[in-house]
Simulated assay, not measured.
Amino acid sequence: MNDSLKKAAATTALVGGGLALWTALAAGASEALVPADGDFVDVPGARLHYVDTGGDDPTVVLLHGIYGQLRNFTYALTGELTDHRLIVVDRPGWGHSTVEGDHPTIEVQARMVADLIDALGLDRPLLVGHSMGGAVALAMALNQPSKIRGLALIAPLTQQMTEMPAIFRGKAPPAPLRGLAAWTVGVPLTTLTGPMVSKQVFAPDAVPMDFGTRGGGLIALRPSSFQAGAAELTDANRALATMVPRYGAIRLPVAILYGRDDELLDPVSQGDVTAGEIPGATLTRIGGGHMIPVTHAADTARWLRTATSA
């Protein structure tokens, strides 16, 4: 090896080591700032972290979106629903929930949540899904309908997307490269672009100053979160291609809520179209963007009470 190649190899190793150190420090800090809040239950293929608020029925199980965790709901929404028993879950592979092997598909996540419902002895709770959590909720309605009594979908991903939202481009490398990307460029890139991405996800609403800790946003600064996000961004269209043709067979009550000004998912193609495909489904719009469980918690809770009484 000549001197120039040796220098290039040394530089590459130095940069890679520095990025890996950045990643490790960021991951450790994020977990310290956003520790586990609740309990854990083991289901086949996963160990799921959840918070049980206790109280009487009706029981509601809540699933967050991509790059999220259960504090997306405990930030504000759960405080508006103290008259319900709420089971708020870190989806498999997110937050403090761990999985065995590769990140599970949308359908496998639904099965894992169904197993959690069984493990906790819940009697057909209402299932709430926000954003990507909405896709998981729909998968359960299609594949494990006896486990739940209905769906309440908040700004859900329900249809295939012709192109990935701009803020997620570059975050879904091919599967063989995800581990390397996660431990080198993934977390530093997320750290640097995080404020801009959050602003776009919340738009037109403002990002709460304490969302990183109280809302769990900082937990995304881990290599496992980068890999989970890459897997779901890649898998979503595949899963929805098989799910959408079956929507007409759903016989559970389904209510859909969208912010009128959602800039991440289109309320018409993701909301109106799907409401028209599911028998009896209803669609409601309120003011706000994609993160209405955080920014418009009182309005979201009022809608959810209507869904729970259906």
Rank of each mutant, 00 (worst) to 15 (best):
M1P: 13
S4Y: 10
K7T: 14
T12Y: 13
G16K: 05
L19V: 09
L21N: 14
W22R: 12
T23P: 02
L25D: 12
A29S: 08
S30D: 11
D37K: 14
G38V: 06
F40I: 10
P44N: 12
H49K: 04
D57P: 15
D57V: 14
P58N: 10
P58S: 08
V60P: 03
Y67S: 10
Y67A: 08
L70M: 09
T78N: 13
E80H: 11
L81S: 11
T82G: 11
D83G: 13
V88T: 07
R91N: 05
W94E: 06
H96A: 02
H103A: 11
I106S: 14
I106C: 11
M112A: 03
A114Q: 03
A114F: 00
A114P: 01
D115T: 00
L116T: 05
L120K: 07
L120M: 09
G121A: 02
R124G: 04
L126F: 07
L127C: 06
G129W: 00
G133L: 10
G133E: 04
A135M: 05
A137L: 11
A137H: 01
L138H: 01
M140K: 02
L142Q: 12
L142F: 08
Q144R: 15
R149F: 08
G150L: 07
L153Y: 00
A155D: 10
P156R: 09
M161V: 14
A172M: 10
P173G: 08
R178D: 03
L180Q: 04
T193G: 00
P195V: 03
S198Q: 15
S198H: 11
A203F: 06
A203I: 07
A206T: 15
A206I: 12
D210F: 10
D210W: 13
R214P: 02
G216W: 05
G217Y: 01
R222Q: 14
S224C: 09
G229L: 06
N237M: 08
V244S: 09
A249W: 03
R251Q: 15
L252Q: 06
L252W: 04
A255H: 15
G259T: 13
L265R: 05
L265E: 02
P267W: 02
P267D: 09
V268L: 12
V268N: 11
T274S: 14
A275E: 03
I278E: 02
I286A: 03
P293E: 02
P293K: 02
T295I: 09
H296K: 15
A298H: 09
D299Q: 15
A301C: 12
T308S: 15
